[in-house]
Amino acid sequence: MLGSLTLILICQLIGEIITRLTKIPVPGPVIGMILLFCGLVFFPRRMPSEVETVGGFLLRYLALLFVPAGVGVITHLDLLMKSWAPISGAIIIGTLATIAITGLVMKFLNRRFACAHEEARQ
């Protein structure tokens, strides 16, 4: 358990160091994710076996982790009251439109590429 947690934190730490040194606009945890992914792909035997348990635990409660940031709404109540229309419009319409567009494109491409595979086989 401890080894896996340490590994995850080390990946994040290296990620943070890389973003700060190179000034690339990618946040540290994302680089950490790429590092852990490469570790799993290239050294599957060297990885602590419970890394999946620790990671699974974090991901199972992923939604909870957003609560503290969400409570921050309390500090922006004035701004939200004043600009409620553009903000709520962007959140509700923007998000649902993005879901619709993304889902439709993927569905279309699934059919398209499935057909391409079929034709290639024939």
Partner: peptide, 29 residues
């Protein structure tokens, strides 16, 4: 105030970073 609240809640908030790193696992699987 929110700052006082966040002094406690930051321990949960902190885990967003490691959880982002852990997303490598479902990707790998």
């Amino acid at each position: 105030d929110y700052q006082t609240y966040f002094r406690g809640a930051q321990f949960i908030h902190f885990l967003l970073g490691p959880a982002t790193v852990a997303l490598a696992i479902p990707l790998y699987r």
